[in-house]
Write a protein that binds this DNA or RNA. Sequence first.
DNA 1: CAGGCG
DNA 2: CCTGG
Length: 300
Amino acid sequence: MELKLDETRPFNLDHTLSCGQVFRWEKIDRWWEGVVEGNVIRITQERDRLLFRTNHSAEDCAEFLKNYLRLDDDLPMILSSIDKDSWVNSAIQKFHGLRLIRQNPWECLISYICATNTNIPAIKNRILELSKRFGDEVTFEDKVFYTFPEPQELAEADLDELKSCGLGYRAKYVLKTAKKIKASPDLLKAFKSLEYEELRKGLLSLAGVGPKVADCITLFAFDKLEAFPIDVWVRRVMYQRYLKKEIPQYPKTGRAKPLTGSEYDELRSFAWRYFGKYAGYAQQYLFYHIRIEESRRMSG
DNA sequence: CAGGCG
DNA sequence: CCTGG
C-alpha cells in the first residue's frame, strides 16, 4: 500500500524515526518496522511516496499514519517561524522533513519514565523487554513482534519482573504509575482537554515524572507544540548557542551542576520568547542536530 | 559515565 | 540510585 505525500508537505521518514522521539522503530534494509497501537507496520519512503505493509487494514493504516506522522502539520510555516538564526537554520536544512510524532499517551508516559538518566540503546532494550514480557505476541510476515503492554498488565506486574527488564530503580515508578492509570482509566483521556500548564501539572503528579519527562509527554503525546523539553543536550545547545555562556559548574571538579527547577524554567521561557509557539519543533531539530554533531565528533 | 527523579 | 553500552 502507499500513501502519497503532498509536495507542499515535506516529510522525511528517516529523520522522523531516527531523531530520538520514539523507541520502538527499527530499520532493516530500507524498511522501518514497528508496532503501534497493537499493529505491526513496515514502512519505507520513496521520494514523495510512503510505502507500507501492515497486518491490519491498509485504509485504516493510511489514515493512522497521516495522524501519527503529523502530516497535517503545516511544516513549512512552522519551520519558517522557528528559523531564527544560522544554527537552527542549519538543523532545518540538514533534517528537512523531520516531523514530530503523535504518540500514544500511555506508551509515551511509560517509555519516558524508563528513559531517565540513561541512553537510547538502553531505553530501546527496556521497552522491548517490557513488551516481550507483558505485551501480546503478533506475528507478521513470519516475524514475531510484541505489542506494548496495557496499563493493567504492568499494574499487576511483579516489581522484580519489571526490574528484570532492565528498569532498575525506575521499576517502582512504572509500577506505581501503572497502578494509578489502571485505577483511573480515563485519566489520560481527561488530560487531553487540558491546556499545557495544567496538563504538565497533572503529569508531574505521576511517579517518575519530572519536568523533562512531563514536557516530552505533553509534546509527543498531547499536541503541545509549545512544550520545550530540556535534557542535558538541549541545555548544552542553549548555553553554547544562545546564552553564550558556560553551563553552571562546580569550581573544583569543573563538572556541570545538575539542572535545577528554576534554571529549567528560565531556559524554557527563553525558548518561548525566542522560538515562539512552535518551540517544541525547534527543540527536536536542535536536539537531533547536536546529537548527530556529537556522535560525529566521537567517531572522529 | 549516561537523554533525571524523589 | 539501577543498569548496560
